[in-house]
């Protein structure tokens, strides 16, 4: 564990707490993509299957359980509890276009051609693009509640913090994880437009609005 990875994980943790806080306090999941949340459930379940056979640390164990549990809870809240506030007509990104290519990539790029390793690769690739339905929805509506933008910023910053972590680990441990690195850089890249608007507008106290 190093400082960058800890910051990344805490940012990831914060993003989920902000998301649940938004849903609970506004009693609404308006502005949130159900598809993106469903993809995160798939990401966490396929990646954290190793909970059942690999012990890393208590920290790792608790965080994995939290990410699986909270993503399922979010999906439940969106699907049942606050269902009427979710508008499927603007959440129209075709997730087949994400899941299919990620599955193919995972079959080609993996560290071992085994079920668990291919699923791990799949989860890494899928995570890198899972935000697209949400960003697509944001693009369509052209604006977002401030709390939703804080959620997205924390979620985007999380993977960005992993990049210095990988550089650090390369020099201190000699460990290189090319699949995670390439996907992580791509994932962070997808947020660049969002970050620009977030830091130039929301951080200055303005509302998040995209130019028409």
């Amino acid at each position: 564990m190093n400082f960058f990875r800890l910051l990344g994980d805490l940012s990831h943790l914060a993003s989920i707490l902000i998301l649940l806080h938004k849903i609970k306090t506004t009693r609404s999941c308006r502005g949130l993509s159900f598809k993106t949340q469903a993809l995160y459930v798939a990401v966490f379940i396929t990646r954290y299957l190793d909970l059942t056979y690999r012990w890393v640390s208590l920290y790792n164990f608790v965080m994995k359980l939290f990410f699986i549990g909270s993503s399922c809870a979010t999906l439940y809240l969106m699907r049942y509890k606050y269902c009427p506030t979710h508008d499927p007509s603007i959440d129209t990104f075709k997730i087949e276009y994400l899941v299919g290519p990620c599955a193919i990539l995972a079959l080609i790029f993996n560290y071992k051609f085994s079920v668990s390793e291919v699923l791990w690769s799949f989860s890494i690739f899928l995570e890198s693009v899972a935000i697209l339905p949400q960003l697509f929805m944001l693009q369509r509506t052209g604006e977002a509640e401030t709390i939703t933008t804080h959620y997205l910023a924390a979620l985007g910053i999380y993977r960005a913090f992993y990049i210095p972590n990988w550089i650090y680990r390369y020099f201190t441990e000699g460990v290189v994880d090319p699949i995670a690195i390439v996907a992580g850089i791509a994932q962070t890249g997808l947020y660049l437009d969002f970050f620009y608007v977030y830091f130039t507008k929301v951080m200055q106290g303005e509302k998040f609005e995209l130019p028409a």
């Binding site: 994980d9 890393v56 790792n60 290189v176 994880d177 090319p178 995670a180």
Partner: peptide, 10 residues
């Protein structure tokens, strides 16, 4: 495998 990846990250 070529890479000694630890899978110890989240």
């Amino acid at each position: 495998s070529r890479f000694q990846v630890k899978h110890d990250e989240l």
